[in-house]
Amino acid sequence: MCKMVLVIAVLALAGCGEGKGVDAQRPKPAIVSTSASAAATTGPQWDLEVRGETTQAVSDLSGWLIEHSFISNVVMENGKSRILMGPFNTKAEAEAKQAEVDAALVRAKKQNIQLLVLEHPAAR
Rank of each mutant, 00 (worst) to 15 (best):
S81I: 05
L115M: 05
D102Y: 08
K91C: 06
L65C: 02
P29H: 01
A24M: 10
V74L: 06
V5H: 08
E93S: 08
N73T: 08
S72H: 02
G79H: 03
Q56Y: 15
A38S: 15
R51N: 06
D23W: 09
T90E: 07
C16W: 11
N78I: 07
A14I: 01
R82W: 08
K20Q: 14
V74E: 04
V22Y: 06
I66T: 12
E119F: 01
T41H: 09
V106T: 14
L118K: 02
A24T: 12
L84Y: 13
S69Y: 11
L65M: 05
P27C: 03
M4I: 14
L6Q: 13
Q111R: 11
Q45L: 06
I8R: 07
F70W: 00
R26T: 12
K97N: 09
V74C: 02
V32D: 05
P27M: 02
G86D: 04
I31K: 03
Q25I: 09
A57N: 08
A92Y: 07
V101P: 03
V5E: 11
T54Y: 06
L118T: 02
E53F: 15
G17M: 06
D102Q: 10
A108C: 00
N89M: 09
S59N: 14
V101F: 04
G43I: 05
S72E: 11
E100I: 02
G63S: 09
I113T: 04
V50K: 03
I66N: 13
A92F: 07
L84S: 04
A30R: 08
A123L: 13
G79Q: 08
V5P: 00
A9S: 13
A40F: 08
A103I: 07
E95G: 06
V32P: 00
L61A: 00
E95N: 15
S37H: 08
K28F: 10
A9K: 06
E95S: 11
E53N: 10
D60Y: 10
N89Y: 11
I31F: 07
H68K: 06
T41I: 10
N89I: 07
K97W: 10
C2M: 13
I71N: 13
K28L: 14
A94L: 05
L115W: 04
A122W: 03
E77C: 08
L6E: 07
K110C: 02
V117H: 01
A30T: 12
R26Q: 12
Q25R: 14
